[in-house]
Design a protein around this nucleic acid. Structure first.
Lengths: 345, 345
DNA sequence: CTGTTAGCGCCTTCAT
DNA sequence: ATGAAGGCGCTAACAG
C-alpha cells in the first residue's frame, strides 16, 4: 500500500497518510475540516499534502459522499452570443458555489436522451434550454430523481422553469411599429420552434388586436442567417411587400436587412426591421437595429443558483419566473437617429 | 441490499441484478459487452435495465476503471465568437469519442491553479488556451500525470500544442496595406497579452522589414470594445494620425472603425482598418471589414482529437502543429467593393 | 456461461 | 484526538 511519492499524479489519501505518519482518517479530517484535529497532525498532514500535491480524486469522493459537486447544462447549440452569454452566467455562478459544469450540446447528438441520462449520472442537477428539444419523457424521468431547471421553456408538470419576458416586449415593439404608421407588419420566425418565439408571436398578435387589426400569419423560417438571406430574396420578388418586419432574433433581422439594402431597398424607409437579443452587430450596423435585450447572463446565473438551492436541500420554486427585458430603440424601426432609449419590462 | 424499484433514480447494479434474477457480474457483463453472456440472461438483464431505467453511476464506474470518459477545457473567458466556436468544435469531437466535457472559465477565478487541479481530478485530459494564463507550474505538474494540450500557446517543455497560423497572415495583411500605398501602419493590440498577438505583431514587423521600413511600436491596448472606442478617441485628437490600423482582433477593429466613422472620418479613405477572426459583424458592417479567418472550430476538434489519442495510449505529438488561416479581403483595407477573395496560409 | 469476491479512493461512524 | 473498519456502486479477475 505504499504510495508513489513522485508528483501529484498517483498521490492518494494513503500516500499522504503514510508520508505524514498518520491514518487516512486524519488526512480526511483535516481536508474536510470536519472534526477537530490536533495542531500537530494538522501540520504534518498539510505538509504531506503540499509535498505530494495531493487532491482527492473526485470520483472516489463522489462515490463516498453521494454527490458530485457539478451541474450539467444542456444547450441546443452555441451559435450567436445568446448561448455563450448564458453559459458564462451559469459557469460563473456555479463556480462561486464550488460546482463544476459539464456541458452538453444537443445539436448533432444521435441519441440525445441517452446522452442526457448519461450526463445526469455525473452531476447533481441539470439545467436545460427549452429549445434543446430534450425528449419529454427524459425530462420527466430526470425530474424527481435530480433537480432540473428549464430555461426559456414552459413550466411543465412541476419542473422548475425560468425565462425572459417575451409577450409584453413583443407587443410593445409591434405597437411601436404601428405607431410609426406601418401598415403591414410581418412576423418572421417559427412560433413552433420554441416557447420563446411562440410567446413573441403571441405579443405580436396582441398588438394587432389592440389596434383593431388582424395579424398576418408568421413567416415560418429557421434561425440561421442563410434562411434570412433567402427570405429577403423572396420578399424582393413578392408582390405585396410588408413595410415592417418583426424578426424572431437579430441574426435573422440582420441578414434580411443586409440583403434588402444590397438590393437597393431603404431601411427603415421602405421597410422597418426589428429583432431580438441585441447582439453586438445590432449596434454597429447602419441603421442601428432596434431590438429587445434580454438578461441572458442573469438567466444563466439564476439557473445555477436554483440548482444550488435545490442540491442544498431547498424546495423547488413553483411555476415560471420571468426576468424583465427591455426594448432598445435604434433607427431600423423608423425612429430618428440617435434617439436611443430603452423601455423596461 | 434490496434496490428501490421506482424510477431510474436509485437504481443500482444490485437492483437490476435482483430484478433480473442474476448476479451483478452478469449485469455488468451485458452492459460492458465484455464477456459472452447467454441470450437468456442478456434478455432478462436488458429488460430489467429498461424497466428500472438504469444507467451506471459514473463516479462508481470511474473509480473502478480508473478513468472518467471526460475531458476538461479551460478557456480564459467566453466573449466573442472565438471561444464559443472553439468550444463547439471541442465538444462535438469529444462527444463523438464518448467523452463528456467539463468547462472551466479562467476569468474571475480567485485560485485558478486550484480550480485547474481540481478539474484535473475529474477528467482524463485537459485542453487549455494559452491565453488563459494558467500558472506555469500548474501546467507542468499536470503534464506528466495527465494528457495536456495547449491551444494557441507555445510548445512548452514537451507539452503538446496546437494553434492557428499567425505570422504569415499578419505579414501578408500588412504587406497588402503597404501595397495599397499606406505609409503609416499601426498595430493595435498588446503582443504581451498572448502568443497569438505576439506572433501577429511579429508578422507585422516582418512586412515592414521586407519593405525596407521600420515598424512602429504597437499600441498596447486590451481586447474589449470599450478599449477600442477609447483608443479611437485618442487617435482623433492625436497629431500625426496613422493611415492604416492592423488590429489584434475584430472587436477592436470594429469598435475603432465605428467610432472613427461617427467622428466623420472615412474608412478606408482616411484610415484603413483590418482585424482578426472574421466575426459575423465583419461582413455586415460598411465597409466590410478585411480580416483573417482562423479555423477555430477545427482547432477545438483537433484538441479533442489529440486528447482522445492520448487517453487511448497514443504518444504525444511533438512540437506545435499550426492550422492554416486565410485573409479575407473586403473593403476596409482599401480594396474596391465586392472584391472579396481569400488567400490561404 | 455465471456467481463470488476483491478492490478502486475516499468518507464516516464506531471504538478507543 | 485518533485509528480501524465498513460501505458508496461498479468492474474484473477468479473459481466453478
Amino acid at each position: 500500500m505504499a504510495g508513489s511519492h513522485r508528483g501529484g499524479q498517483g498521490a492518494t489519501i494513503y500516500s499522504v497518510a503514510e508520508l505524514a505518519g498518520v491514518s487516512i482518517a486524519s488526512v480526511s479530517r483535516v481536508l474536510q475540516g470536519s472534526t477537530a484535529v490536533s495542531e500537530r497532525t494538522r501540520e504534518k498532514v498539510l505538509a504531506a499534502v503540499e509535498q505530494l500535491n495531493y487532491v482527492p480524486l473526485s470520483a472516489a469522493r463522489s462515490l463516498a459522499v453521494r454527490h458530485h459537486e457539478a451541474h450539467g447544462l444542456v444547450l441546443p447549440e452555441l451559435t450567436g452570443p445568446y448561448y455563450a452569454e448564458l453559459l458564462l452566467g451559469f459557469e460563473t455562478r456555479a463556480a462561486e458555489h464550488g460546482h463544476s459544469v459539464v456541458l452538453l450540446l444537443a445539436e448533432g447528438k444521435k441519441d440525445l436522451g441517452r446522452s442526457v441520462r448519461q450526463l445526469a449520472t455525473r452531476v447533481d442537477g441539470l439545467a436545460m434550454l427549452g429549445s434543446a428539444s430534450i425528449p419529454e419523457d427524459v425530462v420527466m424521468s430526470l425530474h424527481g430523481s435530480k433537480p432540473v431547471v428549464l430555461i426559456a421553456g414552459d413550466a411543465h408538470l412541476g419542473v422548475e422553469a425560468i425565462g425572459a419576458e417575451n409577450a409584453h416586449s413583443a407587443q410593445e415593439i409591434a405597437a411601436h411599429l404601428i405607431g410609426h404608421g406601418r401598415q403591414r407588419l410581418l412576423f418572421v420566425g417559427d412560433p413552433g420552434a420554441s416557447p420563446d418565439v411562440r410567446d413573441r408571436y403571441h405579443g405580436f398578435v396582441l398588438a394587432h388586436e389592440a389596434a383593431g387589426r388582424a395579424a398576418a400569419e408568421p413567416a415560418r423560417i429557421a434561425f440561421r442567417e442563410s434562411d434570412g438571406t433567402a427570405f429577403a430574396d423572396e420578399l424582393l420578388s413578392a408582390g405585396d411587400r410588408p413595410d415592417a418586419l418583426v424578426c424572431a432574433n437579430d441574426e435573422l433581422a440582420l441578414a434580411i436587412m443586409h440583403r434588402l439594402q444590397d438590393r437597393g431597398l431603404d431601411v427603415p424607409g421602405d421597410v422597418a426591421i426589428v429583432g431580438w437579443d441585441d447582439v453586438m452587430t445590432a449596434r454597429y450596423v447602419r441603421p442601428g437595429l432596434t431590438t429587445v435585450r434580454q438578461p441572458v447572463h442573469e438567466l444563466g446565473a439564476l439557473a445555477a443558483e436554483r440548482l444550488h438551492e435545490r442540491v442544498s436541500g431547498g424546495e423547488p420554486h413553483e411555476g415560471l419566473q420571468v426576468l424583465p427585458t427591455s426594448v432598445v430603440l435604434r433607427e431600423s424601426c423608423g425612429c430618428a437617429p440617435r434617439a436611443t432609449r430603452h423601455t423596461d419590462h
